[in-house]
Write a protein that binds this DNA or RNA. Structure first.
Lengths: 212, 212
DNA sequence: AGCATTATGTATCGTGCGATACAAAAATAA
DNA sequence: TTATTTTTGTATCGCACGATACATAATGCT
């Protein structure tokens, strides 16, 4: 077992509490005093565990991605492109207005620092957002290959559209929009989605034909 | 005429330069040193003219609204709801990627401070964004009255949708999307717009019948 | 028990922040 | 010319910021 005095706080809990502070006040607006108070620890403990304010922030972003992974997995596992879009935007509308936990409205990846004295922070956030866009793009490319989207459709453009809509919904949430209003936005956006192309491959892929 | 030593700098030019700094670095990320250097003045001149950093920021926001007013006026003057939506989103896509002037990509009202140590800043920005939403909502209410939108359509929801889309486009722009990609997003969003309801009142309103 | 290792609490560091004091400069008014 | 008013440049203020030094506490290892 590991030697030395054991840590007196739970890393995950501390990260969740720091997340709330970054979310509400932004990266630069969150002072070390704010963070240590919310996390219930003193600054030396923070620095021993995370190295620096930016190190803590990166750990918070990692924690955020972990907590959102189940959602994205469920979205990407939907059977067709339209279902993916529906699950995604409706889920975002649900999530962005949900303040039942510690989290303020909106999305950490936007709230915590679109702009910053240090450009590394917005760049890092943009990478995290781009990762979601990439995952959606891949899913839509598959949908096109499966005949679920028209052959001439543009998976990257559709993914960008959804991510843009998602970000727009999150901004509205942070401006005080209600869950109902966010869902209205999502439904307007979804009404537009290209109807299923009808050539979707229903058959089980050959290599799995004998399994079920 | 006004007595005393004349001001040695142009207020509008100084505000434009300060705008660039707030836009790129956010409200909190923009230090007084950054601002005075960009504006080409010393801090006492800044404080004499604008009172405080927040006073300067409010003056910059006012200047921003002034500079965008022509665009919004043109959008709102479009003949029908669909034209309003088209002019708005296409204009935003154009604007958000335009870095030919001093401005970074995206929109000042988002970049300069979605979150902040001082909640007054995001609140002020939200008010400015809400003002655009209100203007669009009024325009769509008129469109519905004129029979240009279906009687059961929801002007407020349509306005929220457009503003959300606009904000999403701006976020994509600040993340490095090209003008072409932003226009693709706008066109996907516009493809969705409810077709003109066909009952649009072309006739001149009665109270103006004798004028032309 | 004694040692090595890691975490904690107190108290503080140097820096950059937003904001000013003050005297000189540049204009008008009498 | 002299008085008045406003702006400018230099130099600096007090403070909050992110980050640490250091002694003590709490564990595992031998």
């Amino acid at each position: 077992m590991r030697t030395g005095r054991p840590r007196g706080f739970c890393t995950e809990t501390a990260l969740d509490r720091a997340m709330t502070v970054f979310w509400r006040q932004g990266y630069e607006g969150a002072s070390l005093a704010d963070l240590t108070e919310a996390m219930g620890i003193n600054s030396p403990s923070l620095y021993a565990a995370f190295g620096s304010k930016e190190g803590l922030f990166r750990a918070v972003l990692q924690r955020y991605d972990d907590r959102r992974k189940d959602f994205m997995d469920k979205v990407l596992a939907a059977p067709d492109a339209k279902s993916v879009a529906q699950l995604f935007l409706r889920g975002v509308a649900e999530f962005a207005a949900d303040t039942s936990g510690l989290n303020p409205p909106g999305c950490l990846l936007l709230q915590s620092g679109l702009s910053c004295g240090d450009q590394a922070v917005p760049d890092e956030l943009a990478r995290h957002r781009a990762e979601k866009e990439r995952a959606l793009c891949e899913r839509f490319a598959r949908a096109r290959d499966e005949g679920d989207l028209a052959p001439d459709s543009d998976p990257a453009a559709l993914a960008r559209y959804l991510v843009a809509m998602s970000n727009g919904i999150c901004v509205q949430a942070s401006s005080g929009a209600t869950a109902r209003q966010l869902h209205e936005i999502a439904e307007i956006a979804l009404a537009n989605w290209p109807a299923s192309h009808g050539r979707k491959t229903i058959a089980v892929p050959t290599e799995m034909a004998g399994v079920s």
